[in-house]
Amino acid sequence: MGGLVSKFLQRWTVFAGLVVVWQLLGWFADDPFFPPPSKILTAAYEWWVVEPSNFTEHIVPSVTRLLSGWAIACVIGVSLGLLLGRSERAMEYAGPLLVFLRSIPPPALVPVFLLLFKAGTSMQLATIVFGVVWPVLLNSVDGARSVDVTKVDTSAVFQIPRWQWVLGVVLPAASPKIFAGLRVSLSLSLVLMVISELVGTDNGIGSQLMQAQREFDYTRMWAGIVLLGVLGYGLNTALLAVERRALAWQPRSRDEQHA
C-alpha cells in the first residue's frame, strides 16, 4: 500500500508542481497569451458547464465523429489487413500503392473530400477514416503475417472451418500488433477530428478553437487545448484498459506503451 501511495505521489508531484508554478507565473506576469490555470478552468467551467448547450452542440458531436471515424477505420483496416497479410501475392500488388497512399498528408485531401461529400459529417468522417486507417491496416498485415508455421500446420491438420481459422487463429495471433495500431490511430483520430473541424463546419471543438482565435480570447483557446489533452489522455487510458483485458492471455504483457 505504501508503495502504491509513493508511486502515485512520484507521478503527480511534478505535474502538480508545474501547475502551481504556472499559476504563480501567470499571476505575476499577467501575460494575455499565458493565462494561469485557474482562469483557464474558470473559462472552461463557464463555457461548457454553465452553458450545457455548448457541451452538447460542440463536444458531443466532436467525440461522436472521432469515435465513429476511428471505428470505421478499424473495421476496414483490420479486415483488409488480415486479408492482405495472409496472401503474399495480394500484398505484392498492393504494397507500393499502400506506401504511397499512407504518405499522403490527409489534410491535403480535405479540399477533395469537401467537393465529393460537401461540407458536413460525411466529409469529416472521410478525412478521419483516410487519415487513421493506415496504422491499423499495416499493423494488421504485419500481425497476420506473424502467425507461425506450426500454428498454420496445426490448423491445417485439424481441418478447422474457414471462420475458425480467421477468427480463432489469425485474429488472436495478430491482436497484439493490431492493438498497437489501434492506439496510434486513436491519437491520430483526435488530430484529424480537429483538422476536419477547422474547415467547413461551424460546430465541434476545432471550430470553437478557431472562433476563440478570431475573437482573441486566449483563455478559451487554452481551455480548448486542455480539453483536447484531457480527451486524448482519457481515450488512450480507456483503450489501454480494453487492451490489457483482451491481451490478458499473453505470457508477458508489456505495460509500457510505445507508439
Partner: peptide, 13 residues
C-alpha cells in the same frame, strides 16, 4: 499430428 514444438503448436490465447 503432435508436433515437436509444443510451445508453438498450442494456442496461447
Amino acid at each position: 499430428v503432435v508436433f515437436q514444438d509444443y510451445s508453438r503448436s498450442l494456442f496461447p490465447w
